[in-house]
Design a protein around this nucleic acid. Structure first.
Lengths: 187, 187
DNA sequence: ATCTCCATGTAGCGGTCGCTACAAATTAGC
DNA sequence: GCTAATTTGTAGCGACCGCTACATGGAGAT
């Protein structure tokens, strides 16, 4: 059996932990290697270069997040706009998912600057969010995924306000966003 | 006259240009010094350390952004929710302000991790946004600044989606957010 | 003219960065 | 058991990082 794949796999898992804890600031070969219980030399044996290593590890982290969200709201369940927003916010705003959200912000910032691998990874993750929200929004005969886009927008906004230390503002905004009948039905 | 203050002042102005262009990745003493036409040695003569230098320069950038927003929507002018959201988005979503927004995202990401000087500076900037929106939102008898919080949330969400390369999603969301009568009046 | 103090240049410290050359050890194939 | 290929350690390269010690320049005061 391919020992290299095994080690590589184990390294990814432990580097994911490390990245979640330290963020992109901890994304240096030597600290990552230490966290994985190996050496920088070996990481560059498992992966072509730092970018590939990061892309794979970040993708793994995205997978974990997907699982966490699916655990909070199983596939198949659909909610109206306000309820879905509240459920989603209570998930991503929880301390357990905070490391994911902080990392997500770092990816978004890097993507905004066109940096790789952030740009590609962040694009893929966002795409996943879009379909996830679309799959959990109660449909009604609605053109396009526009309500999903708005929900995602609101959620990301809440996230950012919270990140800058204004959870109070985020809560106030969520209060309005989920109270009135606007994006629910045409009524 | 204090020559030191003059040079320091000039350095801040040119370092602000540099930071806007390169982002926090360009926030190293030697490149900053080159952009300012001086040496790293002198920067640390003008400022206590890199953190103070960054704090001052970022604050200067925040001032420029305030001016740009005031130019787009003068003090005293008040708009209804939807109109203000559209006006604000057409400003911060414009190419001219893109460097500010990209930098803002980097600050937010740093703040989320509790890094200084990002945390402090980002907090101050957000505070400024809150009062700016509050000052330009048509009041109506509304409890608290909750509508301002929601508008800011939406705006930041649009910003993030755009940053990750999904301006299409942002536009779709803005379309809904500014179309229906929800946060406008109780009607 | 000397003295003092501010402004600046030069050089370097100890550290981290991504990455690589080289060689030793280990394993697998026969 | 020998050979060949895979896996790993050691060492180091050149670049950059924030920051500092030291020396020198020049201007103003006496």
């Amino acid at each position: 059996m391919d020992i290299r794949e095994q080690r590589r796999e184990a390294a990814v898992e432990r580097m994911a932990d490390h990245l979640l804890e330290k963020g992109m600031a901890g994304a240096s070969l030597r600290p990552l290697a230490a966290a994985a219980g190996t050496s920088d030399r070996m990481l560059l044996y498992y992966f072509a270069d730092k970018d590939e290593l990061l892309a794979v590890t970040l993708e793994r982290i995205a997978g974990r997040l997907r699982n966490a969200l699916d655990a909070a709201l199983p596939v198949g369940v659909r909610l109206p706009y306000a309820a879905l927003l509240n459920a989603l916010w209570s998930a991503v705003g929880s301390p357990g998912l905070a490391p994911y959200m902080h990392l997500w912000l770092e990816l978004a910032a890097g993507a905004a600057r066109g940096r790789e691998p952030e740009r590609t990874v962040a694009g893929a993750i966002l795409e996943g969010f879009v379909t996830w929200v679309g799959d959990h929004l109660e449909a009604e005969r609605q053109a396009g995924g526009d309500r999903a886009a708005l929900l995602l927008t609101t959620l990301e906004g809440l996230l950012l306000l919270d990140a800058v230390g204004r959870r109070d503002l985020a809560e106030a905004a969520r209060g309005i966003a989920s109270s009135e009948p606007r994006p629910g039905r045409g009524r």
